[in-house]
């Protein structure tokens, strides 16, 4: 017999089962001698305890005794609910920490960016523009000189188009 079955018998004895469960246990008891034996044992124990239970006398009246317990429970609930006041340093830290973290992240980001875009010479960048089919373009940027350079090269004849285009000489 497992634990659930034993508990079911105890519930049967205490009349805590539903009518359906009650019927099932009755049928079960009719066929299972172990169950019947345990039920008898439980009945004996219950009757022995109920007959010999010590009577406890309350020091105060019943209502007063329970209202005292009620007040005690309420006091404890208030103590638990009261907010724990954090120390000033901890409260400050709560604001300073995110600010310091953000500032550090910004500084690191700026340093990385600075390293990427301000070399001593021009740095190659992806240009935002369109070139005619005959030409290729290479875009550079110099942060130090404040200059973006788009250098064009003729795909077919190295310099023909560009030199002709402006007739420098």
């Amino acid at each position: 017999m497992n634990n659930d079955q034993q508990l079911k018998l105890q519930s049967y004895l205490d009349d805590e089962l539903s009518p359906r469960e009650n019927r099932q246990v009755t049928e079960w008891l009719a066929v299972d001698s172990d169950a019947r034996a345990l039920l008898a044992e439980l009945k004996n124990t219950t009757s022995a305890l109920s007959g010999n239970e010590l009577e406890v006398k309350l020091p105060e009246g019943r209502d007063f005794y329970f209202s005292k317990i009620q007040r005690q429970l309420e006091r404890e609930a208030k103590v638990q609910a009261a907010p724990v006041r954090e120390p000033v340093l901890a409260r400050l830290w709560k604001y300073v920490l995110p600010l310091a973290g953000t500032a550090a992240a910004v500084i690191v980001f700026a340093m990385v960016l600075q390293k990427q875009i301000s070399p001593a010479t021009l740095a190659y960048v992806a240009g935002e523009g369109e070139t005619s089919e005959e030409m290729s373009a290479y875009t550079y940027h110099s942060q130090a000189d404040g200059m973006t350079v788009v250098w064009l090269a003729d795909n077919s004849a190295a310099t023909e188009v560009s030199s002709e285009a402006i007739e420098i000489q």
Binding site: G146, T148, W151, L152, D154
Partner: peptide, 29 residues
Amino acid sequence: LGKGKKVRTEIHPLASGMLVIGGDATNDT
């Protein structure tokens, strides 16, 4: 535009400084 033909179109943010568009010419110029 070179000889009326579009050579290069560039979108340029003014905050990034000057824009230079050019290329090689004859006689290493």
